[in-house]
Amino acid sequence: MHSVEKVLAARGLVAKTGPRFSGDRPMVKRNKNWKQIILFLLPVLTLFLLYFVYPLIFVFVTSFTEWNGISAMQFKGLGNYKRLFLSDTFRLSFRNNILWALVLGLVQIPLAAGMAMVLARKPRGWKTFRTIYFLPNVISQVALAMMWLAVYNAEYGMLNGLLNSVGLEQLTHNWLGEYETAFPAVIFQQLFYIGYFMIVILASRMGIPESFYEAAEIDGANVLQQEAHITIPMLRGILVTTMTLAMAFGMRHFESTYLMTNGGPAHQTSVMGIVLYRNLEALRFGEANAIGTILIVTGGVVIALLRWFFGRKASASETVQ
């Protein structure tokens, strides 16, 4: 939700917030501004058609073929899809992507929102914290992966070193090399890099007028109650937005896993992006593009479900009020 709106609402300047989508309004026969609308949409649509629609048609069409990029394509029907769903590796990767999406959406975003709420109350040094939390987003993934490889290493790693020094030898692991620990370790590495989402949420949070909290304070609401009854409802829009983005990132997750484990051991940390990349490398464009198609379709479904769920819940809660 946007700050200005809240301020205006608070001052009674607007009776009701504007509709989230103008499509909610009754359909006008033809918008009198149609020329300008087209003009405004032209740049974005041109780029989108060239860089998304055309390539995606290419991806979609070739996903039904066997093609190495050099010889003529051979139509295979659903052969690539069938092969993928029969493959243990792909099914595992698919599951891992769903887990990534859930963890990023349902754990990372609450962590980021929590931090935004804490920092919005301006504890000592909050500006410094805000900057530091963001720094990992600036460091290249290559450098981050190098460090975490060293943290998790079984021979000289820092994590095992810590455990040994506090007498917990039995808890040491070859973190990225064991079935039980590899996937959690890879997720853990990304989970706490909340910087970007935290900044986005914090920007919105700072827009909520201080007077709301002061009023609640006088009514005797404690900090947690204030957050639950003022912040969370007012940030609903931005929370759904960031959650959607985080889940999308989870579905197409690739880079840090590729850099740290390349999907190993025995595909335990594999994700669809890694299988896709491996097929590209082997010049199996048909199968790679089938994965691309699956990824987009399932991601779309996950996100549509999320928006539908929150949209419904939101309207339900509004009627309760």
Binding site: G264, A266, N279, E281
Partner: peptide, 19 residues
């Protein structure tokens, strides 16, 4: 081919871990 070579390491990890 490169996808088979990539599988070598994955399968090896599985064997080395006793699975």
């Amino acid at each position: 081919p490169s996808d088979v070579v990539a599988e070598f390491g994955q399968a090896l990890a599985k064997m080395a871990l006793g699975r």
